[in-house]
């Protein structure tokens, strides 16, 4: 598909990784490549930033490690991995505690990024 025809799609991860299945199923949706061929980005905000926390040990819960799932997404040709700055600060998290170095954006810039998308899928 020609670059000009590609749609900009942003996945928005807003939930904590465990306790519900929202985060895992949203990450699965990305990893299954349903949107391949488009310009796909992923943004982590609100409790969604916890999905990026390093050193998670969810084995006792019988759930998949969200940090590892996100790392696997790096193998795909994503347009960007964005992390909301205020969400990190509100939860006493530093970028250095995350499994990857996403692009940390202040809330006002993230909302601008959302406005530029063709499709925003919020989970």
């Amino acid at each position: 598909m020609a670059a000009a025809n590609k749609k900009r799609i942003l996945y928005v991860q807003r939930r904590a990784p465990y306790g519900t299945l929202y985060a895992q199923e949203a990450l699965e949706m990305l990893s299954m490549g349903a949107a391949f061929g488009q310009r796909v980005g992923i943004a982590f905000l609100d409790d969604g930033v916890f999905q990026l926390k390093a050193e998670q040990t969810p084995g006792a819960l019988g759930m998949k490690n969200s940090g590892r799932m996100v790392r696997a997404l790096e193998l795909h040709d994503l347009e960007g991995i964005y992390v909301e700055q205020e969400s990190l600060v509100e939860r006493n998290l530093e970028p250095g505690q995350l499994v990857l170095a996403g692009k940390v954006l202040p809330r006002v810039e993230l909302s601008q990024l959302m406005a530029e998308q063709d499709l925003v899928l919020s989970f």
Binding site: K7, M32, A34, A35, Q38, D118, L119, L121
Partner: peptide, 11 residues
């Protein structure tokens, strides 16, 4: 159906 159908309809 598959997730491709979600993306397709979104587009």
């Amino acid at each position: 159906g598959g997730l491709g159908q979600l993306i397709e309809s979104g587009i």
